[in-house]
Computed example of a mutant assay.
Amino acid sequence: MDGLQQIGLPVLGIVAAAALTFYVVSFSEIREKSLRDFEDYEANGKFKSSLSSRERRARRKAEKDSKSS
């Protein structure tokens, strides 16, 4: 039982940290998308229904290029 606790407890901690990190990153991305949608609404006065895949790729590429610069 002692050996299991020595190995199991750190593994459980790592799994819990990974799950927490996943949820934090996911909610952060959702919040950023919501804020972008809200800014678009304020600028245009209406929400976009959905971005086409081409527009999504272009936006991701622009964001990636701006982060790397």
Results as ranks from 00 to 15, higher is better:
Gln5Cys: 05
Leu4Asp: 01
Arg31Ile: 08
Phe27Arg: 11
Ser66Ala: 15
Glu39Thr: 13
Ser69Cys: 07
Ser66Gln: 10
Asp40Leu: 05
Lys46Ala: 13
Ile7Ser: 05
Ser69Glu: 05
Asp37Lys: 15
Glu32Pro: 00
Gly45Tyr: 01
Glu55Phe: 07
Arg31Tyr: 07
Val11Tyr: 05
Ser66His: 08
Ile30Trp: 07
Ile7Phe: 13
Arg57Phe: 11
Ser26Ile: 11
Leu9Arg: 06
Glu63Met: 06
Glu29Ala: 15
Ile30Arg: 14
Ser50Met: 14
Ser52Gln: 02
Asp2His: 12
Ala16Asn: 03
Leu9Asn: 02
Ala18Trp: 05
Asn44Gly: 01
Ser53Asn: 09
Asp65Gln: 12
Glu55Ile: 06
Ala19Gln: 03
Val11Gly: 01
Lys33Leu: 04
Tyr41Ile: 03
Lys33Asn: 03
Ala62Cys: 04
Ile14Arg: 02
Ser68Ala: 15
Ser66Tyr: 05
Lys46His: 13
Lys33Met: 08
Tyr41Ser: 09
Arg36Thr: 06
Glu29Gln: 09
Ser53Thr: 10
Glu63Tyr: 08
Glu39Met: 05
Pro10Phe: 00
Glu63Trp: 05
Ser52Asn: 07
Ser26Trp: 12
Val25Lys: 10
Met1Val: 06
Asn44Pro: 00
Tyr23Pro: 00
Ala18Cys: 11
Phe47Gly: 02
Leu9Gly: 01
Val25Ser: 12
Phe27Ile: 13
Tyr23Glu: 04
Ala19Tyr: 12
Pro10Leu: 01
Gln5Ser: 09
Val11Ser: 02
Arg57Ile: 09
Ser49Glu: 07
Lys67Thr: 04
Asp65Trp: 02
Ser53Met: 10
Asp40Cys: 07
Glu42Pro: 00
Leu12Phe: 14
Ala18Tyr: 09
Lys67His: 03
Lys67Pro: 01
Ile14Pro: 00
Ser50Asp: 04
Val25Gln: 12
Leu20Glu: 04
Glu63Gly: 03
Glu29His: 11
Glu29Pro: 01
Ile30Gly: 06
Glu42Gly: 02
Gln5Thr: 10
Ala17Asp: 03
Val15Ile: 15
Gly13Asp: 01
Thr21Met: 09
Glu55Arg: 14
Ala19Ile: 10
Phe47Asn: 06
Leu35Thr: 12
Arg59Thr: 08
Val15Glu: 02
Gln6Met: 08
Ser49Leu: 14
Val25Arg: 11
Ser26Glu: 11
Phe38Asn: 04
Lys33Arg: 10
Gly13Leu: 03
Gly3Cys: 06
Arg31Gln: 12
Gly3Met: 08
Gly13Pro: 00
Gly13Phe: 03
Ala17Cys: 14
Ser66Leu: 09
Lys48Asn: 04
Ile30His: 10
Arg56Pro: 00
Ser68Asn: 13
Met1Glu: 05
Arg31Trp: 09
Leu51Trp: 10
Arg54Asp: 04
Arg57Val: 08
Ser53Gln: 08
Phe47His: 11
Leu9Thr: 08
Ala58Pro: 06
Lys46Asn: 09
Ala62Asp: 09
Pro10Thr: 01
Met1Leu: 09
Phe38Pro: 00
Lys64Ser: 14
Leu4Ile: 03
Ser66Val: 05
Leu12Pro: 00
Asp40Asn: 12
Glu55His: 08
Ala19Pro: 00
Leu35Val: 15
Lys46Ser: 14
Val25Asp: 11
Glu29Asn: 13
Ser49Met: 07
Ala62Gly: 08
Glu29Phe: 13
Glu42Tyr: 03
Ser34Leu: 10
Lys33Ser: 04
Glu55Val: 08
Phe22Met: 06
Ser50Lys: 14
Glu42Cys: 11
Asp65Pro: 00
Leu12Ile: 09
Met1Asp: 02
